[in-house]
Design a binder for these strands. Structure first.
Lengths: 228, 228, 228, 228
DNA sequence: AATGAATGAGAGTTCATTCAT
DNA sequence: CATGAATGAACTCTCATTCAT
């Protein structure tokens, strides 16, 4: 562990800084290389399992440089977390909430979440790991709290319009709905390996995933429309 | 935090014999103390973050004894994992699958899972961590695979009887259904801290949890009954 | 290390004690089993590399029993050493020194040494290891010093008779001759593995050994007969 | 005890580069200090008996640095072994094989070996210990095999020239001859302590050694010239 | 903006031996 | 004559970080 006297200030702004950072290009900053390497390392090994030395080697960077750009291992970890969550929030907001059909809008959100998590399993692993740390680092990042709020507002709006127009059942709660959605789009990813071993089936198989998604989507639609 | 004051027979303990172990007695064997301490430590810190020294201290046991009873840190970890999963499987099987009404049976399973995970968050954290390790250790345990197989069979049976009698929609798949159930009973737990921070609400609140459970239960019932 | 306050008394008499000890038989004393196991262990791993636990396991004996029969690891080691050397000396004395032809007698001794070492590589390894320990343990054993003296006397006698009769060159020294003999019968054994690796040839091959022995024997005969 | 104040280039150092290393200078690199300390430690205690901690203390080096420069205890041990054997081979090759009189050449080799081993008893002990380990580590070192091959070739050449010219007996084998030579130059060293104790005489005494060497040299000359 | 050897605390593991029974 | 769990010191090795250059 490190001490971490950092309390608020987001040591590393997660948005693109300096020349758009085209990854893979030779003209990648030392800082960028560190971030990329760190993301891979933290994703693969979690915070405690991650090795600074491996990050350094992968980024082909001198130890001193890490401590020049970041406060230390934890600082780097926070930066990576902010970066990954930033990407999620940034894309999430692209939905046209104002005019979309409420049911369709919500299902679209579901689809987006499903596909984003499947495409960015880094993020899923980072979040899973961060929860195991009891959100110790996330808690300190103002940036993360700020970037999350719009989502619930959007859902709220869709639910309101939907229940007003009678297309959606009333009484739904935005946060709860969001949690259900994420549960149904993230759980099978944050547990692929264990589930695959336990039940001796490959849950990473695209067909299996497609069937699962269809199930989940159906479940959600019925839930939103529930009459009874 | 987690509750587990279990003293019962550890379903999965293929290692040493345990001298009649008089459950509930104060006389706890060294091995038992190690297991309890290890479970707490691995639960709290994950495998990489766990410290053998702390386990030893908590169990008031000499370093050598750990290696007398277990092959090492990993061996101890696997034993803990088997123990925790064993408890789940053992109780799961107590459900009366044979005679229960299919829908009721499945919802009963849902209730059981929901309550078991909420009562045994140790297990949830262990599984979450083990997945981050890509099920590296679980993969070695035949015991875990074996103890898990009856679960799907049980669900299969209920689904079959339900669709035959026309009470349940046909075409459901046992594994997929189980994954949905676990998603809807585990996700909010394996992400409490992160979600609570991100949305600035306490997802550990009993009322919130009760409401969430009701939602999930409804969602599941509709899904099972779906006619469309 | 252990302390070893033992200075003189040979804790363990190496000669057969109790019922002739027929090795391999079920009626083998605990002490015998310990000796057999210890000899194998010390032979294979040397003193520092030997593990008390392995000896215990191999002898199927309880730790306490080792310390009942021996003062500890070192005591056991000394007993093994005495035992192995005792066997050598005991056989060596069977030559008829009084009447044998001097040259033949000495060559017979050479043959005996050659064959005994090849047949008892345990002993060779034990001696090699003991020298690495600077004869630390051997030095303490009065038994070993006592059992060795007859050999030189025997050689002396043969050399004397041989030089008197003119059959052997004069001026030979018993100890030096003995050292030459042992060098030429033991070295290739106490270095088999290294030499085999270094020169990429199998020095354990019986043909190679036979040729080597013939060489050595010739060398020795010429040496004893040298006129020049 | 052993003398080796060597500061020359370590013939066998296939690892890190050594910055021009100005031989003879007081400025000894960390790696050099480690090697020197390790050589002393492994020589004195063998591989199993050697303590990394003592090497570290003697070299005044931080634990981490050992593992920065070497793969671990075994790696360090192998490096020491290569170093010591490298010195032997390097000097061995300085003999003028091409032009020397065959008999003189071989006796010169004998003299060199005798003196080198007496002066570098480190090497003798290392080899003896390595054989007890069944050449486990040496086997991994290609460097050692490579550096050793010229030796036999050299002997072969001398034997060939000698038997052609009729000065040496025909039928000699290079490897066997080398083994005899090393037996007669190394055995009394790799068994000094045990022999000295067993026969209660000081085999380290220079006079004794000189007489022994003379004996061995004679023995070898006669062997090479043998007509019979 | 960059280097790479150095640090010391602490990681997991293993040792020969002894205690309670 | 026998058990096997217990001991604590010491083992090899690894950690995130910083120093001298």
């Amino acid at each position: 562990m490190t001490g971490d006297s950092r309390t608020e200030a987001p040591a590393a702004t997660p948005r693109k800084r300096r020349r758009a950072s085209t990854p893979g290009t030779a003209a990648e900053t030392t800082r960028d290389r560190l971030m990329r390497a760190a993301r891979a390392e933290f994703t693969q090994h979690g915070f405690a399992g991650a090795r600074v030395e491996r990050i350094l080697a992968k980024a082909r960077v001198n130890p001193r440089m890490l401590y020049h750009h970041f406060p230390g291992k934890s600082g780097l970890y926070v930066a990576v977390l902010e970066d990954a969550l930033g990407e999620l929030r940034q894309h999430e907001l692209r939905l046209d909430v104002e005019r979309a059909d409420p049911l369709e809008g919500l299902l679209q959100l579901f689809d987006f979440l499903n596909d984003h998590f499947e495409a960015n399993q880094d993020l899923v692993r980072l979040l899973s790991n961060e929860n195991l740390l009891k959100a110790r680092f996330m808690r300190r990042s103002a940036a993360i709290r700020e970037m999350s709020s719009p989502t619930l507002a959007m859902i709220d709006q869709l639910l309101a319009r939907g229940s007003e127009s009678g297309h959606l059942a009333p009484g739904h709660d935005a946060l709860r709905l969001y949690v259900h959605m994420v549960a149904l789009t993230q759980f099978h990813l944050s547990n692929v390996h264990t589930l695959s071993v336990i039940f001796d089936q490959d849950l990473a198989d695209p067909h299996w995933r497609a069937a699962r998604k269809a199930d989940a989507r159906t479940m959600l639609r019925h839930f939103l429309l529930k009459i009874e």
